[in-house]
């Protein structure tokens, strides 16, 4: 019973969508839907590409994602704005309705051809530059650490040469334990008394 109601509900929704799309299929519907899914799918596929360098992949994926984020409002805005211009035309109402559709389509084309690439280079470039700037700063810090590593290696080499060329020799002379050099453990803080 519940399943039947759900399927009837779906069928009614589908019927309403079909009637609306049949009466007025705005050119913005398809392009906005495509841009939305592209904004998710295209960066995902770019990140899955095994041929590219990981840094290039991240840059490309971010750029593609941001382009679609810019594209969605640009399509809608250009389409609606162009349709409003059509209302200013002094023609019969029937022709004005046709002009509305045509203007909206031309607005969407203009968005795809000029507005989105222009907006992308205006808005995305500084943003990407900002991210890259941060990355460069982060890259500079490990380089300094690397320099320190090199110095440490140099010291290590010196230590190695010393150990090879000059074998360890005992320079201290051995003194047998006597009353003059004996120090008990309680006085020195050590558990075992040492002869010195």
């Amino acid at each position: 019973m519940f399943g039947f109601k759900v399927s009837m509900g779906l069928a009614n929704k589908f019927r309403n969508i079909c009637i609306k799309l049949g009466e007025n299929n705005k050119p913005t519907y398809a392009v906005m839907a495509i841009a939305t899914v592209k904004g998710i799918a295209r960066p995902t596929f770019t990140m899955m590409d095994k041929h590219e360098d990981p840094e290039t992949k991240k840059y490309t994926a971010l750029r593609e994602g941001l382009t679609e984020v810019v594209a969605i409002p640009a399509y809608w805005g250009c389409g609606e704005l162009a349709a409003k211009i059509a209302k200013q035309m002094k023609v019969s109402p029937e022709k004005q309705a046709l002009a509305g559709h045509n203007f909206m389509f031309l607005g969407v084309c203009a968005a795809a051809l000029f507005v989105i690439p222009a907006l992308a280079s205006l808005a995305i470039k500084p943003f990407m530059g900002m991210i890259q700037g941060d990355k460069n700063k982060k890259k500079e810090a490990p380089q300094e650490e690397h320099k320190l590593d090199i110095k440490e290696n140099e010291i290590d080499n010196r230590v190695k040469t010393v150990s090879i060329q000059q074998p360890h020799e005992f320079t201290q002379t051995f003194h047998p334990i006597s009353m003059s050099n004996y120090a008990p453990a309680k006085m020195t803080g050590m558990k075992v008394g040492a002869p010195w």
Binding site: Y29, A30, V37
Partner: peptide, 28 residues
């Protein structure tokens, strides 16, 4: 009569196809 519901069903399929095709299938 233009039978808009038929046109709408075709356009619905086209939109779904465009989205799946251009955003998922064609990039692959």
């Amino acid at each position: 009569e233009k039978y808009n519901i038929v046109k709408g069903a075709i356009e619905f399929g086209n939109i779904v196809g465009s989205v799946l095709g251009l955003a998922i299938f064609a990039p692959q």
